[in-house]
Amino acid sequence: MPRRLLEGAMALAVTPDAANSSGSGAAPGSGPLWWVSDCHGAWYSLAVMLPSLAFVGFLAWQARRSFRRLSYGRSHVVVVAYYALLWAVALLNLLWCFLQAWQCMPDRAFSWNVLSLFTKSGMLFLEVSLIAFLLQGNEASGYESLGRTFVISGAVVSADVLLKTIYVFGFGVPLFIDADQGTGGKWGLWIIHKLVLTGVYGLIVFMHHSRWKDRLPAKPAYYQYVCAMLALNGLSLFGCFLIACGAGFGLWLYNLTTVCYHALYLPLLYVTFLADFFQEEDMLLENVYYSEMKDAGFFDADWD
């Protein structure tokens, strides 16, 4: 068992070329499950596919109740838009997870780059908007404050998309191919990207332990979310730095953080920021139903 776990962990660090050349020597694209094991290997693919599929299934299972809560609860339009955005990003992320083999297929390079650009930009938009929400602190008026963050988040993500588009389609940098191809510009950009996010999350943690603590939302779940994202981005930054220095372990660490991000970030976001909202809407909706039934005389017989 330990040997199998070790093999599964090391499979995360396998480059596409190595994955294609390993195994029984079958040609790429052969076998019933080639799209699972052809690129990074089965362990990597299953690690990103199963959690993302489970989360989309959970959203679909809760969709009817969630739509009812959003409509009857008179939710702010920003909350509705944020929930719709979560759905869109979750579906994009599901496609990204299931189409991992595209990054090892030269004829699918353009499609993979476009899919990766949209998926990562959507997830970054969610991440930046929540950072802006947290930095507003106690001045934020609940979920309605997210409306003021959409413009800022859109500007930040637009600049990020423009830069990545220039790198990928202008200079031909394989930014979304998770293999060490010796392109210093690629890993340099990811180092800057992760460094900015790590610095912002570190700033929020510092504020939590300083005299500015009262400016942040008091909910403990928000602080736990920030700590988790700080650790994830810090490890990813360290992995990118190791890759830039030529250390093979860095690719394993970077791929591990990529798996964690695409598999667990959206569920973490939902549990931290939206689950409580839907619970509050449930209570309000039950009160509305009770009032309507009481006005209609459904409980008059209880007093006879």
Rank of each mutant, 00 (worst) to 15 (best):
residue 222 Y to C: 07
residue 191 I to V: 12
residue 228 A to C: 12
residue 196 V to L: 15
residue 238 F to S: 11
residue 200 V to D: 06
residue 140 A to C: 11
residue 157 V to Y: 02
residue 215 R to I: 04
residue 235 L to W: 07
residue 247 A to C: 08
residue 142 G to S: 04
residue 129 S to W: 03
residue 129 S to F: 00
residue 221 A to V: 08
residue 212 W to E: 11
residue 245 C to D: 07
residue 211 R to M: 08
residue 168 V to S: 02
residue 131 I to E: 09
residue 225 Y to H: 11
residue 203 L to D: 12
residue 216 L to A: 03
residue 238 F to Q: 03
residue 238 F to L: 14
residue 233 N to A: 03
residue 218 A to K: 10
residue 160 D to C: 10
residue 124 L to E: 11
residue 222 Y to I: 10
residue 129 S to G: 05
residue 202 G to Y: 07
residue 149 T to E: 13
residue 156 V to C: 13
residue 185 G to N: 11
residue 242 L to R: 08
residue 241 F to K: 00
residue 190 W to Y: 12
residue 127 E to W: 09
residue 136 Q to P: 00
residue 243 I to S: 04
residue 156 V to Q: 04
residue 141 S to L: 11
residue 189 L to S: 09
residue 215 R to S: 13
residue 176 F to Y: 15
residue 138 N to C: 10
residue 130 L to G: 00
residue 226 V to H: 01
residue 248 G to Y: 01
residue 190 W to H: 12
residue 135 L to D: 05
residue 133 F to Q: 03
residue 144 E to H: 11
residue 220 P to W: 06
residue 150 F to C: 06
residue 212 W to R: 12
residue 169 F to S: 11
residue 146 L to R: 02
residue 222 Y to F: 13
residue 169 F to L: 10
residue 163 L to W: 12
residue 144 E to D: 15
residue 166 I to L: 15
residue 191 I to H: 02
residue 160 D to N: 10
residue 153 S to H: 12
residue 200 V to Q: 08
residue 127 E to G: 01
residue 243 I to C: 07
residue 135 L to Y: 00
residue 232 L to W: 05
residue 243 I to E: 05
residue 134 L to T: 12
residue 139 E to G: 13
residue 184 G to P: 00
residue 124 L to Y: 06
residue 199 G to K: 03
residue 136 Q to N: 05
residue 198 T to N: 06
residue 171 F to C: 13
residue 233 N to W: 10
residue 176 F to Q: 00
residue 196 V to G: 04
residue 148 R to E: 15
residue 122 G to Y: 04
residue 186 K to L: 08
residue 161 V to P: 02
residue 138 N to T: 14
residue 159 A to P: 06
residue 239 G to P: 05
residue 234 G to E: 05
residue 132 A to H: 09
residue 243 I to H: 02
residue 151 V to K: 14
residue 171 F to A: 15
residue 236 S to F: 08
residue 201 Y to E: 05
residue 123 M to E: 14
residue 241 F to T: 07
residue 148 R to Y: 12
residue 189 L to N: 06
